[in-house]
Structure formats: structure tokens, C-alpha cells
């Protein structure tokens, strides 16, 4: 039949067109800043994984005789801190803490926040009001105070840092996801699925969530940067990971007392935070542009 042939033709031309269109990754790479961000993030992950191979010294070995050395002195790439520990190695190991806390805390916040957001947005009504007012309350609570309270209750430690920062991330995700779900919920295909007799669980997990994913991913990426800063801030206040474990925030904190004598400690740990956060944000921006529905996903 000719009509079948014609249909086939349309599908073929559509396919040709698809091939011409660029994949998400291509679009990302084309954006130079995003590509830069991606490369830095990649290097950072490599550094964290292979920290023992990259570090030139044991990050926790103290040698007071070699305290506060300058850049490059006696084979210490970035000098030493007040206890004579190699700053370069401490920063390399610190990247582990930053990445673990950044990713784990955001995951924690994303899972709980998204669930709450989906439920609030999808079912609406009283449930929505209760959940979102609670989130508003959480938002209004000063983060540092929240963290201090939690640390006091739970005690210090990596896991507790993750939980504290994770909880602080929950309301943000809940809001983003709820807003997204409110939009997707009104789509005709959701009504279609309801008319087929599907249960809520199926509609939420098969249709609503997958279609809300793009902004969640972008928000999560940006949140990792925020979580890394939060971790540094907590460590700076002495609420973070226990010493002597190296973390960028704690190196910065130690460095602030020796800012005049030896600015290397504060400078290099601060620079690490700066470059990491900047790269993640650049990457996140690029990701958002690439995922923008107006530019075709």
C-alpha cells in the first residue's frame, strides 16, 4: 500500500533529522565553560580515587622540624603546615572528603526531598500544605544552627556531616520537584494513563518522575557545589570531620592562624574549594542549557 510507504518515508526522514541533531554530550562539550568544568570535575574524581598514588607524603605524618616550609622547599610541593605535614598531600586527600560529602549529602537530600516533593505535588490538597509548610520551616531555620544542633545530638564524624548537610538540602529539592510535578501532572499523557486505569504508584514512577528528571539533575549538580562549601564551612568551625583527617575546610581553618607567617595553607585549600565549586557550577549551567526543553532534549 502506498500509504504505508508514505508513513515509512516520514519515519525515515525524521530519523535522518535525529542523526543531524546533536546528542546531549556533544552539546555540553560545545559549551567551552561547561567542558572546562567537566574536565576539572573528572580530574578531581581521579585525584580522589587515586589519592594514595598521587600524594607525595603521608598527609598525617607530622614533623615539627619541617613546619611551615614554603612552596617547593625540601621536596614539599606546596610547602608544609604548622605541624610539618605536606600541604599538597593533605589537599589531595581532602578532595576525598569534599567529594564524598558533596555527593552523599546531595543524594540524601535529593532522595528524601524528591519523594516529599512528588507526593506533595501529585496529591496536592492538605498533604501538600502540610509537607510544604514543614519544608518552609526547615528553610527558615539557619543552616549552621541546624548543623550545630545535629552535631551536638549525633556527635561529630563524616556520616553525621553528611546527614546534617543532607537535611539542609531536603527542602530545596522538595520545592524544585513539587514545582516540576505540578507542571507534568497537568500533561495530557498523565490523564491518558489515568484513563487506562493505572494506579497512582505507576503514574508517579513511570511517568511523572522520569519527566521531571531534567531539572532535578541540574539542581542536584548545583547542590553538590553548595554541599562542598557547607562541608568546608562546618570544618572551618570545627564541626566537621575529626582531625587529623584532612579536609579543605580544616586546612583553611588551621591556615588562618598562620596567614602572615605562611599563607600557603589558606591559599591552596581555599583555591581548591574555589576551583571545584566554580567548575561544578559552570558544568551545571551548561547542563541546564543543554537540557533546556526549548532547545530540544
Amino acid at each position: 500500500m502506498t500509504s504505508i510507504q508514505a508513513e515509512e518515508e516520514i519515519v525515515k526522514t525524521m530519523e535522518d533529522k535525529r542523526k543531524k541533531e546533536q546528542s546531549l554530550f556533544r552539546k555540553l562539550i560545545k559549551n567551552r565553560l561547561a567542558a572546562f568544568g567537566l574536565i576539572v570535575i573528572f580530574l578531581l574524581i581521579i585525584t580522589a580515587i587515586f589519592a594514595p598514588l598521587i600524594a607525595t607524603h603521608n598527609p598525617n605524618t607530622m614533623d615539627v622540624t619541617k613546619a611551615l616550609l614554603g612552596v617547593g622547599e625540601q621536596g614539599y610541593l606546596l610547602g608544609t603546615d604548622n605541624f610539618g605535614r605536606d600541604i599538597f598531600s593533605r589537599i589531595v586527600y581532602g578532595s576525598r572528603i569534599s567529594l564524598i560529602v558533596g555527593i552523599a549529602a546531595v543524594l540524601f537530600g535529593a532522595v528524601i526531598g524528591s519523594l516529599l516533593g512528588v507526593v506533595a505535588g501529585y496529591f496536592g490538597g492538605k498533604l501538600d500544605s502540610v509537607i510544604m509548610r514543614f519544608m518552609d520551616g526547615l528553610f527558615a531555620f539557619p543552616f549552621i544552627l541546624l548543623a550545630i544542633t545535629l552535631m551536638t545530638v549525633l556527635g561529630q564524624g563524616l556520616i553525621n556531616v553528611i546527614i546534617a548537610i543532607g537535611i539542609a538540602n531536603v527542602p530545596g529539592f522538595a520545592r524544585v520537584v513539587r514545582g516540576q510535578v505540578l507542571g507534568v501532572k497537568e500533561s495530557e499523557f498523565i490523564e491518558v494513563t489515568r484513563s487506562l486505569g493505572a494506579k497512582h504508584r505507576r503514574i508517579i514512577f513511570q511517568h511523572v518522575l522520569p519527566n521531571s528528571l531534567a531539572p532535578i539533575i541540574v539542581y542536584a549538580t548545583m547542590s553538590v557545589a553548595g554541599a562542598i562549601i557547607s562541608e568546608a564551612a562546618l570544618s572551618f568551625l570545627g564541626l566537621g570531620v575529626q582531625p587529623p583527617t584532612a579536609s579543605w575546610g580544616s586546612i583553611l581553618k588551621d591556615g588562618k592562624d598562620f596567614l602572615v607567617l605562611n599563607p600557603n595553607m589558606a591559599t591552596f585549600s581555599g583555591l581548591s574549594i574555589l576551583i571545584t565549586v566554580l567548575s561544578i557550577n559552570l558544568f551545571g549551567d551548561g547542563l541546564r542549557d543543554a537540557l533546556d526543553p526549548k532547545m530540544k532534549v
Binding site: S3, A6, K20
Partner: peptide, 22 residues
Amino acid sequence: STIPGSPPDLSLDISGCPFAAR
């Protein structure tokens, strides 16, 4: 009575009469 198929995709090169395919 219908015209089979759909209009061509204008981002692809069309040689000849644009209606030829239908």
C-alpha cells in the same frame, strides 16, 4: 480522499518538486 504521508521536512535537502513524494 486523502493525501498520503505528511509534508517533507524542510531541514533536509529536497530535490525536484517538493510535492513529488506524495
